[in-house]
Amino acid sequence: MNNKVLFGSYVPTNSWLHRLDPRAKIIACFWFVILVFFAKNFWTYAWLTFILGIAMVMTKISFKMYWNGIKVLIGLITFTVAIQILFSSGGTVYWQWGILAITSGGLKQALVIIMRFVLIINASTVLTLTTESLELATGLEILMKPLQALKVPVNQLTMMMSIALRFVPTLMNEVTTIMNAQRSRGVNFNEGSLIKRIKQLVPIMVPLLVSSFKRADELATAMEARGYNPDQARSQYRVIAWQRQDTQAMVAMLVVTIALGLLRIWL
């Protein structure tokens, strides 16, 4: 049912980016998102778009899939952009009605927002399309290790995260099954007023919650039976190793950053 939700899904094409260490990819993606906020003028945005474009081509995944990822968020983007255009001031005024005004400053702002949205969404999509969710969890776990010094329960958090990731598809299946079962009992989910539609969620939400509680209970018992102790140091089954290509990726990010800095100063 959910071929629309691209964000968070993984497409195996075994590209260079697929083989990178998840830590390298997380850092690069995080860093890129920060860079997006440092971009200022046409050339800096052009540069970031160019770099992201290269990364997207390198994933060997069709641009249509990226477009699908953005399509889901188009409502949100339009809304934010509309607000920006109508309520910003500055520059030449093209049209005015009370507090609403379309100005050159507002249009510029709107363009900046669109660029930021597109760049950030696509950058994170590159990350999730090329990294399996469990790899992602392992990567985050290691990256978060230093937080242990601040008494953050990293072990427990990452365990919760990997369990959550593991159960997303299971729960999705469960939702489909429960929805089908209720549809066959005469519920029509695409019909009626807003209130009626919200009421129709009860026959889905209640069974889903109940089965999640049951599942959690069973899983906890099974984990205890297999000797899981949250406070103990655990060894890793999934070992990820930093390789030369990962260093190369980091160097590439550094080059991108320096170039961005220079473009910002000179142009």
């Binding site: 469960e174 429960i178 089908n180 109940v210 089965s211």
Partner: peptide, 29 residues
């Protein structure tokens, strides 16, 4: 909808679809 009036479908593990406050309410649904 007409089709679903003719056909009754008992899914695998149908107890998963129970949701109402009482047994009677659930069967009446």
């Amino acid at each position: 909808g007409k089709l679903r009036r003719l056909v009754g479908y008992v899914f695998q593990f149908p107890e998963k679809q129970l949701f109402a406050e009482s047994v009677l309410d659930d069967v009446k649904f």
